[in-house]
Design a protein around this nucleic acid. Structure first.
Lengths: 244, 244
DNA sequence: CGGTCCGTTGAGAGTGATCAACGTTAGTGG
DNA sequence: CCACTAACGTTGATCACTCTCAACGGACCG
């Protein structure tokens, strides 16, 4: 499937019925204006959201008022899935840019699990991939300098945006404030500014008016704390969840 | 089900066939000696491991040689599941104490997905719960002081050990070196020492010879950066994945 | 009894936080 | 089209939490 549905067939191919079901979700999108919440921490969990277009963020608030951004979501991401195991939402979901999401109710998820085993496997594998991504983030933040965190974040973001078809000429829209990046990487906005400026001065990146271009991938990788893990090919999962 | 199988029915109840299947996994355990690897980063992914007894750890190594411990595993945890979506293992699994694990092959997982929908749902929900746990860890490490991280870690560990039936008289075995805790919380061993001593001196905890007792839960919670999210009750998921 | 690992303690250094000010951009209403 | 305002980015000075380096003691083990 093409973006933004590319993630569903990242690991296994889906039968036509499953593909139609997924496409059907996109029929009734909900539009969210920039900076508006999609669902707040503590809200009841009525389902999950599929991000059709725009950027979104998941974050949690600490008792001292600090915000930790968990992840920047790009089109194709499923939002709020972890909260399914909680009695109320454990994260705030909000639109970074104007966005369009498809609400998927608990009942709809139940039907997927009962009637669409292949799609269920896709969801299970996607959940595991998100765990890998969180592991990565934890690694950056736990044991790397501000420069290394920033490099790793930019490289990861680039990969995800490219998969979503949002990179043109090696550049992409970059609607994040420095305060936001700070909340994501566990830094202050001031230090984010200094770090970005340093990457810019070194010639690794180029920033201009809401767009970001990565000029030197090798350079960024050289200051990045780790190499991204390689995803498994199609083949490994071809047989799982056999018949629809 | 009783520990260490308690996690499988944490969200939904399982039909007898599924319960028998899970019990069957425990028939051929593999014993791992203290400090020995179960699977190394980069090894081929032949399946996952169910931790029957003992403590284990997942960790990743950074390019500069630093180690980031992702999670301390206690009996009942499923190890290595995220690596299923990678072409080679993305994390090192090793035994902290003498441990006993059940290897579950890729083929066996495939059979679960095809023939045991309720158990598949249990796995999917468990994966989401692990995402919540990783979110928590990310939050602590990203935006909290050493004291706060330590408090949150100890409280979380206590909850998980209690669920596994490993707490007696409010105390539990504590086989972690300070270096290890440092790798987990993103601190140096020296600072871990100072932080633990401070918690001890304040009267929040008591450490003695491989055992740890939490003396003042309220005190620990007061320095902890956040309150743990409340898991959803049984009821919410009763109907999902209907028939076996 | 020697060696190694682990915990403990001290002194000094550094990364990133904090506080504060100013410039710049974008959005709004007249 | 311009004035006004608020949000965001930039820069400097200072502070502090945690790291680094180093040394020593105790426990366990061969």
């Amino acid at each position: 499937m093409q973006p933004p549905f590319h993630r569903f067939e990242e690991f296994i191919s889906l039968p036509p019925a499953d593909i139609n079901l997924v496409r059907g979700w996109a029929a009734n999108p909900r539009r969210i204006a920039r900076h508006q919440p999609i669902r707040r921490e503590g809200d009841p969990v009525n389902g999950v959201f599929f991000l059709l277009a725009g950027w979104a963020a998941s974050s949690v608030i600490l008792r001292d008022g600090q915000r930790q951004v968990i992840k920047v979501h790009v089109p194709g991401d499923m939002l709020g899935f972890p909260s399914l195991v909680l009695s109320s939402a454990g994260e705030t979901l909000e639109a970074i840019t104007d966005a369009s999401v498809c609400p998927i109710s608990n009942a709809a998820i139940g039907r997927v699990i009962e009637q669409h085993p292949r799609l269920t496997v896709a969801l299970l594998l996607n959940a595991q991939k998100e765990r890998v991504a969180l592991t990565q983030a934890l690694t950056w933040i736990g044991s790397a300098s501000a420069l290394a965190r920033m490099a790793a974040f930019l490289l990861d973001l680039y990969d995800r945006l490219e998969a979503a078809g949002l990179v043109t000429d090696g550049a992409f829209d970059f609607p994040l404030t420095q305060q936001f990046i700070g909340d994501l990487l566990g830094l202050t906005a001031v230090h984010v500014n200094r770090t970005l400026k340093r990457l810019d001065a070194t010639g690794y990146i180029d920033r201009k008016k809401g767009r970001m271009q990565i000029l030197d991938f090798e350079g960024l990788r050289s200051v990045s704390p780790n190499l991204p893990p390689k995803p498994a090919g199609h083949a490994a999962w071809a047989r799982i969840g056999g018949k629809s």
